[in-house]
Structures are given as C-alpha cells and as structure tokens.
Simulated scan of single mutants.
Amino acid sequence: MPPWGQRPSNGRAPIWTASRRPWYAAPMMPLTFGLTEEQRMIQETTARMLRPFEERRREFERVLREHGRVPDEFWTALAAAGLLGAFVPEEYGGTAMGLTALATAADAMASRGFGHPLFLLTGMDALCIARDGSESLKRRFLPQIASGALKFCFAITEANAGTNSFRMTTRAVRRGDGYVLDGEKTFITGMDQADYVLLVARTRSREEVEREGLPKTSCLSLFVVDCHTPGITRTQLPMRAIDGAAQWTVHFDGAEVPAENRVGE
C-alpha cells in the first residue's frame, strides 16, 4: 500500500487522500453537562426548602432509620415548594415542572442527606393518573397530591415474577360496581406511610391471555387502592430500601376497590 495520499502504481486515485477528512474529524455538536437556568432555579428552591432542616439532619436520619418515616413537616415543605406537584397539571393545583425538574430536586435533596423514595413514588403515581386517569380520578387525587395531603406508593413486584409484569398473578375480578383483589406483592416501599397504593393487577389470568392469543400486555391494569381497605394486610421484610424506607410484602385477600378507581382502560 502506498504512503498516505500518494497515487498508487496503477495510476488510479487513492481511495483516501490527504484532502479527505475522516469521519471523526467532521464537526460535531458540542455537548454540555451543565444545568439550565430553570434547573438552577429548582436547585436553589430545593436548597431554600431544606435550610430549616439542616440543623436537624441527624434527627431526620434517626426517624428514617428507626421508623422508616418521612417527618410530616418535611412533607409539607415539599408541597409548599411545589415539588409534590411536579407531575400535576396547573389546573389541578400542580406546578407541571416535569421529570427533569423532579430529578433535579431529588438529586439536590439526596446530596444533602434528605432523600426518600416516597417522594419519587408519589410523583410517579401522579403522572400515571394525570396521563391516563378519568376526569373524576384527576379531580379526586391530583390536587391532594400536590398539596401534600396524600402520599402514594407503587405495587408491581411479585415473588415469582419480579418486575416481569407479564408473569404476575395478582387478580382484579369485576364484581358489581367494583373489582375484587386477590394476590400478593413483595418488596413494596412505603406501604406503611402511603394513603394509597397504585396497584398493577390482572383483570384476566395469564393462561386466558395466552390461550386466546392476546398480546402479553392485555388485561394488565392499574388501580388506585386505599391502603387501609379491608382485606389488605402487610408483613415487614427484614431489610430496608435506600434511605431507610421499610419494605413490605402486601397481601390482597378479597379486598374491594371501586371500578372508578381503575386507571385507563
């Protein structure tokens, strides 16, 4: 092979010449890992919200470690800063700041020792209701989430399915004006603190879905369930999640939920 850019002995032009720029020399869009002005404002808002709690950080950590609970006054401060309403549209009392804002606030809290998964779980559940819930569900729950009046957790994991939701067996069977819930979820964070749990359950069994050749995603639904509903019991697991939150196995034994609490179709 001739030296770079020289014409080969056959007289033909070289495939690559010095005048050609290889692909890696082409201009590329600059990457920036800095924060936007909006994200800086969210960081500053979060820092101001945390300032009254800084001197009591040890107390906060002790409450989390010993009881796995978020102090009520801290939750109220999150609501006052608009952080609990990050996924709640403004017409329902939220700030509609979105995912990046929520993540920025969560990072700022965690870096100062004030992180807790219930904050993110409540926000995630609010997003599901805002996107796919009925107007009735939105009006019932979104304003109370944004104001800090309600806490939510999320239940999808099962002992024999993990997060492979296609294998889950927890059932929601239609009966009259509601659904009857039967099954078990495990590694559920914040079940002892939440007012409601956003539950993933089957309206038809996996065997029925496979037998009828339906898509795997068929008959998997979300339900907003009161954590104190008769027929729901919980057992604490001998472990804690990130930031000291307690983990639970949750049993549903004939628990009833109104049909209007189903999220989406």
Rank of each mutant, 00 (worst) to 15 (best):
M41W: 03
L50G: 03
T45Q: 12
T46G: 04
E38M: 09
Q43S: 12
L31T: 14
F53E: 02
V63K: 07
M49H: 06
Q43N: 15
F33K: 00
R62E: 13
E37G: 11
Q39A: 14
Q39H: 11
P30C: 07
R51C: 05
L50Y: 01
L50I: 11
T32S: 12
E44A: 08
R58I: 02
M29E: 13
R57E: 03
L35Q: 09
M41V: 13
M49K: 01
I42Q: 00
Q43D: 15
R48I: 03
L50T: 04
L35E: 12
G34Q: 01
I42D: 07
P30A: 15
A47Y: 07
R48H: 10
F53V: 05
R57S: 04
M49R: 02
L50S: 02
M29V: 12
M49S: 06
F60T: 03
R58S: 10
F53W: 05
M29Y: 08
F60E: 02
F33M: 02
R48D: 14
E61G: 00
E37L: 09
Q39C: 05
G34L: 04
F60Y: 14
F53G: 02
R56V: 03
F53I: 03
L31I: 12
Q39V: 11
E38Y: 11
A47G: 06
E37C: 08
T46W: 02
L31K: 05
L64C: 07
E44M: 06
F60W: 08
M49C: 08
P52H: 06
I42F: 02
R48S: 10
T45E: 11
E54R: 06
F60L: 07
R51F: 09
E61C: 01
E37A: 12
R62Q: 12
E59H: 10
R40N: 09
F33E: 05
T36F: 03
M29A: 15
R62H: 07
T32V: 00
E44C: 03
F33G: 08
R40H: 10
T45R: 14
E38K: 14
E54C: 01
P52E: 14
Q43A: 14
L35Y: 10
M49F: 07
V63M: 09
Q43L: 13
R51M: 14
E61F: 03
E59S: 08
R62T: 11
T36L: 04
P52A: 15
F33Q: 01
R51K: 13
A47E: 14
R58L: 01
L31M: 11
P52G: 10
E61T: 09
T32I: 00
T45H: 12
I42K: 01
G34F: 04
E54T: 04
R51I: 06
M41K: 14
T46V: 12
E44K: 06
E61Q: 05
E59Y: 09
R56G: 06
L31C: 02
R56Q: 10
T36Q: 02
